[in-house]
Simulated assay, not measured.
Amino acid sequence: AFADGALTAGQVATIAPITGEEQRAAAEAQGVDLGAVDRALTEVAQSPAHERLAQAVHHYLEALDPDGVEPDPTEGRRLSIAKHADGSVTGRFDLDAVGGEKVQAAIESIVQANRPQGDTRTRAQQNADALVQLCDNQLAAGSLPTLRTVKPHVVVTIDVDDLADTDTTGPAAARTGFGARISAARARWLACDATISRLVMGPGGLPLDVGRDKRVVPPHLRRAVEQRDGHCVFTGCAAPTHWCDVHHLREWVADQGETSLDNSALLCERHHTKVHHGFRVERQPGGRWRTWRPDGTEILIGTPLLV
């Protein structure tokens, strides 16, 4: 079939393990017609269900040794993360069936719980947003193992002048804990709901003074915002409070916005990002929240949320 151009080299490589010495010996001992198996797998490879070829080969090989020792599924697990020049990352993981099921179940729970009306994201985008939200939730819960007595969190270091200079985006002005360089604008967005620490550096690059950590949004104010808003206030989104950041309607750095109930809004990670990229939310006197796109048009239920 391969010689005739009906199969790809990749499909041949997928089927090839059935012809290994041990596999052929096991097939002969059990009276298996290897030619019939070969033809059946070739048919699968040429059928509309060709994406299941690897699964079919796996089932056949398992059937050759039904009483064999169950392999340790954790031995084959792999996760690699490659970092690019702009700080973005590309990843690949290989998981066994049970590990993969757990990951899919966790991501699916976030995807299905956050399906605002008019959502135009692809499934790949939904999965990626769900993965970030899942990590965001876990970090916020404070239940992850500590790192040298400190709870794991996102760390960003930025010079105070770059933080305060709101007239420019400040490319590569801030550094994250894992070494990525991000803009001052992005650092200001992260600082919207964060803990701020002040360090005074000497001419030799050594810290002269370390100030106390200060929470931008204190716990009592967050409780009040959660009680008032109930969920993400971006039109069409109902992400629960524990997914959300407290956003300053008037930015506390750029616009000297005060940290108060009137100047606060609950926004999930994705929509908090959108609001810092041109979208706008506003609370009406009667308590209703409204959302506008960067072009000034209002987002209404039943219209696409993003453009």
Rank of each mutant, 00 (worst) to 15 (best):
R77T: 00
K83D: 04
R78V: 15
S197G: 11
H248N: 00
E43G: 15
V281G: 00
R250L: 01
G257P: 04
G31F: 03
V216D: 08
D38Q: 10
Q117C: 12
T19V: 11
K214C: 14
T166E: 04
Q284G: 07
Y60H: 12
L190K: 00
C268G: 04
Q46L: 11
A113M: 03
G118L: 03
Q46A: 08
A26C: 06
V32D: 07
G202Q: 07
S183H: 04
R270L: 03
F2M: 06
D255R: 05
Q46M: 13
L144R: 12
R78A: 11
S260A: 04
L34E: 06
V98K: 12
A54C: 04
G302D: 13
V12Q: 01
G287N: 06
R52K: 08
V155A: 14
E51I: 14
A224F: 07
A140F: 10
L144H: 10
V160H: 09
N137G: 09
D255A: 08
A13H: 12
D262C: 03
I107M: 05
F178Q: 10
P17V: 12
E108C: 02
P66C: 07
R186D: 00
T157S: 13
R280S: 01
Q227N: 15
F279A: 00
A45P: 01
E21I: 15
A82D: 13
V57N: 05
T146C: 12
V103R: 08
T14P: 08
R115M: 03
L261G: 02
A185Q: 07
C135H: 09
A164D: 11
P116L: 09
S80Q: 14
L300Q: 14
A184H: 02
D213R: 10
H271L: 00
A113P: 07
D33L: 01
T90K: 11
T149W: 10
V307D: 15
I81S: 08
T166Q: 03
A45M: 09
Q227Y: 13
L147H: 15
D295Y: 12
E101A: 14
G278D: 06
H231M: 09
R283H: 03
Q104P: 03
L7W: 02
A128L: 10
A254P: 04
T19A: 14
E51C: 08
H271R: 01
A124P: 09
P71I: 02
T273G: 01
